[in-house]
Design a protein around this nucleic acid. Structure first.
Length: 460
DNA sequence: AAAAAAG
């Protein structure tokens, strides 16, 4: 254990049993099939077990959650909680993330008798109160609901032994920093603090300077960079064609190779609803998830998706970060994200743990700036285009003003139309039927049915 | 300009 902290070269990988964890935890790990810690676990767990504060700079997908869950379980193994005085507190920015952390506590703490409570919004206070009153070892919460309980006088944080802050930079994005400061001030200074953030902007730095004491700073490289395990594509479309965009999405889903399941990201909650409904109407197995939906529905949907009982999750950026949904084969970006960083988070839902992933994004000329920003953050010169010309041809064929095909209704059967590789939709034909019943009997001179692709592409 | 979280 004398290896230095700054060593960047690959060390011999330790096993979990070498980290000093309680045997009951090791048993739970073995049962889950884990033998070797990830780099952040290997570095953070021994420090945390020594009782040091930890500042972990790591992204999702690095095994960050277990790097605090395991030492917290270890520490709580002895002792017992008193009413309304939790022994540990884990703060997470979103409800789903909090729920996910609680699952890990259940998984790795299965051989311990730890009591646990999840304090998140959107669900009734009654159950949460009852648990607090009985006393909890592990309290997992989102900041808003935690403070709410505290203000009602149902909760004392003065008995806290360990406090964990997960995804601090995201809390910053969400305006939780003042809440976080308030919470810190409610806890005893004797507590141990494990603090995790993917980045260290000044506001976060200030917070850690103030509330962490001589922390072990542990920084791990990003998980496998996006480019390595994820095939990225874009499909270009003209602006302002909502129906076409939805058709293109369906096309991408239908033609996706080895599609096991996928997340479809939209920028707006309203759009999430629209797209989910549209997909359902077209017979796709899809459900929406975003912050305005009832928590029960969110939980149910996410669980279905994890269990494989749901193929397509249509999501706002509530699902972009942090959520651990193993085995997502495809990510579809219905819209180019407004913050380019979100692109990385979104596509990071696929290609995890060394598996191959696919990410496709619909891009319109309106997205110019946002798309440039995506290129910038990914460090790519360009993202390869996915060929959807067949779809665009179809679409243009159906929507374009009538051509010679229609004359044939009077002029008799037309071989060319019958053999057209570009079938026009019924909808398109009906529209035209009312208008040009008296069109010229002679074939139109010009491109006719065979508009060259380059002309159709001018639109985008 | 969006979403998230306390209602």
């Amino acid at each position: 254990m004398t290896e230095n902290d700054t060593d960047q070269s690959p060390k011999t990988t330790p096993t979990f049993s070498e980290l000093g964890l309680d045997t009951k935890i090791l048993e739970a790990l073995t049962e889950s099939g884990y033998t070797h810690p990830t780099p952040i676990q290997a570095d953070a767990i021994p420090e945390a077990l020594r009782g040091r504060d930890v500042l972990g700079i790591a992204q999702t997908g690095t095994g960050k959650t277990a790097s605090f869950v395991l030492p917290v379980i270890h520490r709580l193994a002895r002792g017992r909680a008193r009413a309304r005085m939790p022994r540990s507190l884990i703060l997470a920015p979103t409800r789903e993330l909090a729920a996910q952390v609680s699952e890990q506590f259940e998984k790795y703490g299965k051989n311990h008798k730890l009591s646990m409570a999840l304090l998140i919004g959107g669900v009734s206070f009654a159950d949460q109160d009852a648990k607090l009153t009985r006393g909890v070892d592990v309290l997992i919460a989102t900041p808003g609901r935690l403070l709410d309980h505290h203000e009602r006088g149902k909760l004392l944080l003065t008995g806290l032994e360990v406090m964990v802050v997960d995804e601090a930079d995201r809390m910053l994005d969400m305006g939780f920093i003042p809440d976080l400061e308030r919470i810190f001030k409610l806890t005893p200074f004797t507590r141990q603090t494990l603090f995790f953030s993917a980045t260290m902007p000044p506001e976060i730095q200030r917070l850690t300077d103030q509330f962490l004491s001589a922390p072990a700073r542990i920084e791990v490289a990003k998980p496998a960079t996006t480019a390595k395990t994820i095939t990225q594509r874009i499909a270009r479309l003209p602006s302002g064609e909502d129906k076409l965009k939805r058709a293109a999405l369906r096309h991408l889903v239908e033609t996706a190779e080895n599609l096991k399941n996928g997340i479809i990201f939209c920028n707006r909650k309203k759009n999430v609803d629209v797209i989910a409904k549209s997909l359902q109407e077209h017979g796709f197995d899809a459900r929406p998830i975003h912050g305005d939906l009832p928590q029960s529905f969110r939980t149910e949907t996410l669980q279905m998706f994890r269990d494989g009982g749901l193929k397509l999750l249509v999501a706002s950026d509530v699902a972009a970060r942090g959520l651990d949904i193993p085995d997502v084969s495809h990510v579809f970006n219905f819209s180019v994200p407004i913050n380019a960083d979100d692109y990385v988070h979104r596509i990071g839902r696929t290609g995890r743990a060394g598996r191959l992933g696919h990410a496709v994004m619909l891009v319109t000329p309106d997205d110019g700036k946002a798309f440039d920003a995506v290129l910038k953050v990914t460090g790519l010169d360009k993202i390869e285009e996915h060929d959807i010309s067949a779809l665009l041809d179809d679409w243009n064929g159906a929507a374009r003003p009538p051509e010679k095909g229609r004359n044939n209704r009077r002029g008799g059967p037309n071989k060319k139309e019958a053999s057209s590789s570009r079938p026009t939709s019924n909808k398109g034909r009906d529209r035209r039927d009312d208008r040009h019943d008296d069109g010229p009997a002679d074939p139109v001179v010009g491109f006719g049915d065979h508009t060259p692709d380059f002309l159709l592409k001018e639109m985008s």
